[in-house]
Design a protein around this nucleic acid. Structure first.
Lengths: 176, 176
DNA sequence: GTCCCTGCAAAACATTTGCACTATG
DNA sequence: CATAGTGCAAATGTTTTGCAGGGAC
């Protein structure tokens, strides 16, 4: 679900009948917490990845390394981890990507190489900036998203070498 | 088609992800450009919306106002507009949302009320910040995404009225 | 007249969910 | 043992696409 369109986000509200149903759902789905080998497997595999992985990617990684596990379980565990702050997520290529999050829930952002997927955590810019933006428009800021994309030094070099348009699909590491 | 350039790794919708790679593919799928009444209808309807609308939302708006038009056409036109810089997009509630973009392609961000959808354009923070982040990690920054969510003054007031333990936390900003 | 654009239905896709079953605590 | 977690298949919901036909230029 997670379709908490409380706002008339899509600007229509023509047949929007479901509004209140969101909260109950939110509570109901705090996610798995028992110690199953699946949970451990997902977390272990996630820890082995330096960069962001998609649910499908992680599932495939697990399968490849001989661990047979249900895709839905991977989704459920991953969501659970994200919700409890053990993993953080970004959206890349229309997919939700996960990564272990060492420090509980501190607010941070990512610098992601759009070629090889290498990722670094970065600090948000001056908080004062958000405050001033908010003040200017009479807003109370509740959250923000920010990701910075670019090319790491190696990939930049590669890109300049093989500029023949070849590299495109050869290096989709993050797409496993 | 678009599936490919999405799969490649530019991840960040339209923003400014097209660095050097605004290659043939991009040109090839620039989308509809003829003057059909559908194109006009989509653009007109989009102009009437102050805030972001989803493709489906816009389609419904059109239908409601008596304009029968194919959903796929709406998608195609919207994508075309976004690609040519006439519209900008954000992702809200798992949907891609569109809005007319007055000033060609200048890079900007949005402050969005997560309750009523009200939107303001905001300037990015000090560019020096990006530069320093990039320098520190040896990156060449090609693009970035940023959206700030919050409550506008009216919605904040509303929220405080009906503070009956209701969700009010409409965001699960997991990917802040 | 030649294409491009449209519309429909069907596909593609990632993600979620219903339900019977199993393992955890 | 009770029940939370699993796995499968089916459902969901958004966005794209194949293709035949009609309109734009």
């Amino acid at each position: 679900m997670s379709r908490e369109d409380a706002a008339r986000g899509d600007g229509t509200s023509v047949d929007s009948a479901d509004v209140v149903t969101a909260d109950s759902a939110a509570l109901a789905r705090s996610g798995p917490s028992r110690h199953t080998w699946q949970r451990k497997a997902v977390l272990d595999q996630l820890r082995q990845c330096d960069d962001f992985v998609s649910a499908q990617g992680l599932h495939r990684l697990l399968e490849v390394s001989g661990t047979s596990i249900g895709l839905s379980t991977v989704y459920r565990q991953l969501n659970s981890l994200a919700e409890s702050g053990l993993a953080d997520t970004i959206r890349l290529n229309e997919r939700q990507m996960f990564r272990v999050c060492e420090d509980g829930g501190r607010h941070h952002h990512h610098l992601v190489c759009e070629r090889c997927g290498k990722t670094f955590e970065i600090e948000p810019p001056d908080n004062e900036w958000f405050a001033s933006v908010a003040r200017r428009h009479g807003f109370t800021v509740t959250s923000h998203t920010m990701e910075v994309f670019g090319l790491c030094s190696e990939c930049l070099a590669d890109a300049q070498d093989g500029e023949v348009g070849a590299g495109s699909d050869t290096t989709r590491s993050s797409d496993i």
